[in-house]
Amino acid sequence: MTNMALFAEHQVRADLARLLLAAVEASGRTRCDIARDAQIHKDALRRVLTGERSASLGEALRILAASGVTPQAHILLFLVSSGDHAIAWLQSDLAQFFEDFTGELPSALERVLGNQVHNVRPRWAKGTAHRVARLLSDHIDELERRDALLGDGFASGQGGHHG
């Protein structure tokens, strides 16, 4: 059952303000520049960042984009995980991966599952998420092994020319 207290307006506004403020501060840009690029008045931006005013979804996306972060990924993280994940992943390759992954996932599920897409059960979500993470970890390990082998091969090849 969903805890409705998590969706209290003041709490959502404060959490979103914290995410947006972190993005603005991490950007290294002035608030005036961000306000201009996000097409929001600088005083409205100040009130959004302090939590005095709620940002619309469009404003939040534009503020994140003007701050140089992946807007959809951070809004998704904010909605499905926590503001802490969204803040921790600011300006990271992991955020870009998450944005690309979640953008591709619906069509990939339809393409791969075909008619089986209607057989998917919600109870499988957690296990599937862990399996995808393990597959990704294995993939990274394999790439690191290949890089190490290529590096060793390159070093021995270089050594042979200079020996």
Rank of each mutant, 00 (worst) to 15 (best):
S27T: 08
G151T: 03
F98S: 05
L150H: 10
L76W: 11
G160I: 14
L143N: 07
N3H: 07
R47H: 13
D43H: 12
L64G: 02
Q96K: 13
R53Q: 12
Q158Y: 05
Q11T: 15
T102C: 12
G83L: 14
L21I: 10
D147H: 12
Q39N: 09
A38M: 07
A65C: 02
S54H: 02
R13T: 06
F98C: 12
V24G: 04
L149V: 07
T128R: 00
H10Q: 01
A125Y: 03
D138K: 01
A73L: 06
S81R: 07
E59Q: 15
A38V: 15
L135Q: 07
R36S: 15
Q91Y: 06
G68M: 08
H74P: 02
L79F: 10
R46D: 14
S82I: 06
G114R: 10
E25M: 07
E52G: 07
A44V: 14
F98R: 09
I75R: 02
A55P: 10
T70H: 12
Q39M: 15
A125L: 06
V120H: 00
G83A: 15
N119Q: 06
H162L: 09
H118L: 12
K42D: 09
A65R: 11
G28Q: 00
R13A: 04
G114E: 06
G160T: 13
G159R: 03
S156A: 15
T50I: 11
R111I: 14
L109N: 00
S81T: 01
D138S: 08
N3I: 03
S137P: 02
A23I: 00
H85S: 10
L135K: 07
F154N: 05
G51S: 00
G28I: 04
P122A: 04
R134A: 14
A60P: 08
L20S: 00
A148E: 13
R47D: 15
I140Y: 09
A73T: 03
L94N: 03
I140A: 13
E142Q: 05
D37T: 14
G160S: 08
A38S: 07
L45H: 08
L109R: 03
M4D: 12
S54R: 12
R36D: 13
G160Y: 11
G153N: 06
G127Q: 09
A35Y: 10
G153Y: 01
N115Y: 02
E142T: 13
R53M: 10
D100T: 13
L20G: 00
F98L: 07
N3G: 06
A108C: 11
R131Y: 13
Q96W: 06
R13C: 01
L135M: 09
F78E: 00
H74V: 04
S156K: 08
L61Q: 07
G153C: 05
N119A: 12
H74E: 00
L90Y: 00
R111P: 09
L79N: 07
H41N: 15
D141I: 09
L94T: 08
G163K: 11
V24Q: 02
L6N: 15
A23H: 00
A26H: 04
R121V: 03
G153W: 08
A22N: 04
P106E: 15
A8L: 11
L109D: 04
K42I: 15
A55K: 01
K126N: 14
L143M: 11
A60I: 09
I63F: 09
Q39G: 11
A129W: 04
